[in-house]
């Protein structure tokens, strides 16, 4: 079966211009390097717990590359590196995983919303951005990420319904990796296909191989074209498998047969895309190896860079919560009762 898929992929690859193919490959290579380096940094104790996205490079790279830089992205915790494909230094998302406030990227510069940790909470935001742009007669679409687990959450359903009613140019990109931490798809939903959920809201759905970067690129491109043409939202189910653990603190042997991981691993998209590009005659092996090596260059000294980032005081952070910082935000030990301070004002 995999052999046939490879053959199909080689044929499909010849449809794409070389620059598109290499751009997608480079984006995947950058994401992979980030992910590998983040896992190492976690093992070294230089960042905290980290949700790896090993195996989701294809769908993530395609989601960024198939859209324009004016389009908005709404990530969850598993897409913290997509902002680097919009020009943000990798240092920034790595600082987030180190727990440093420097990890908050500039949302307006990159048109990438802040990472939403509770799954599906980002999807209504994507609807609002897309809908708002439509009301302002602006030509842009928004894309919200999710996983199979997020399609059980209320916000997914409210987002889908609202998007359909107002025909918002939004893309719900759901990567069905078949696991939500330890919960398999069969315990998440009774529908066979996550894409079927679109029907309840009158949203057209596309099913695509999450390991095939070109198929994902085409699917996101089609969804964006629909949105730009005033045809409303699209649900994309990118079907894959979570090739790694949920995160660095997760132990999959507790809940799934690791033989499954071994069987799925040949689908790993970077190696597969590289082999396909060589076999289709799009690029030489050495050229692709060089792209991968270059992708790592930015990250070579990143461990030192994140450790060199000057600490931020808690008082500084307190000053970023409100436009005008209310009184009384200082830690208790720093608050001086007025009767001790002689009635003076406190911070």
């Amino acid at each position: 079966m995999l052999g046939l898929a490879e053959t199909e992929m080689v044929a499909a690859l010849r449809k794409w211009p070389r620059e598109v193919a290499l751009d997608l490959f480079q984006a995947m290579a950058r994401l992979r390097t980030f992910d590998e380096r983040a896992v190492i940094l976690q093992r070294q104790g230089r960042i905290g717990t980290y949700p790896t996205f090993y195996g989701e490079e294809a769908v993530q790279a395609a989601s960024v590359k198939a859209l324009q830089s004016r389009d908005w992205l709404f990530p969850t915790y598993r897409q913290t590196a997509v902002v680097t494909l919009r020009g943000c230094p990798a240092l920034v998302p790595l600082l987030m995983w180190r727990g440093h406030p420097g990890g908050w990227h500039d949302v307006m510069d990159y048109r990438v919303a802040p990472v939403c940790v509770p799954v599906a909470t980002n999807l209504p935001h994507a609807v609002g951005a897309a809908w708002g742009a439509k009301l302002r007669h602006e030509d842009l679409v928004a894309l919200g990420y999710g996983g199979d687990g997020s399609t059980s959450a209320g916000d997914f359903h409210e987002a889908c319904n609202l998007a359909a009613v107002v025909q918002a140019p939004v893309i719900f990109l759901i990567t069905n990796n078949q696991w939500a931490i330890s919960t398999p798809l069969s315990k998440q939903t009774r529908v066979r296909r996550v894409a079927d959920k679109g029907a309840a809201y009158g949203i057209p759905a596309i099913r695509v191989d999450a390991f095939d970067v070109f198929a994902c690129y085409q699917a996101v491109g089609e969804a964006a074209a629909r949105g730009r043409a005033g045809e409303g939202p699209t649900l994309i189910e990118a079907i894959g498998y979570r090739l790694g653990p949920h995160g660095t603190a997760d132990e999959p042997s507790l809940y799934r047969d690791l033989e499954l991981d071994r069987l799925w691993d040949p689908m790993e998209p970077l190696r597969r895309t590289q082999a396909g590009l060589v076999r289709a005659g799009v690029a030489e092996e050495a050229e692709l190896d060089q792209i991968r090596a270059d992708a790592g260059a930015e990250l070579r000294d990143i461990g030192d860079a994140i450790e060199a980032e000057p600490p931020v005081t808690v008082e500084e952070i307190a000053g970023t919560v409100h436009r005008e910082t209310p009184w009384g935000l200082l830690p208790d030990g720093l608050r001086e009762p007025s009767w001790r301070a002689g009635g003076g004002d406190q911070g």
Partner: peptide
């Protein structure tokens, strides 16, 4: 629609595009 989480969430997204 009857959807407080949905439309309050959407209002957050609207703010991002200038509304």
């Amino acid at each position: 629609p009857l959807s407080e989480a949905g439309f309050v969430g959407a209002a957050i997204g609207m703010c991002l595009v200038g509304l």
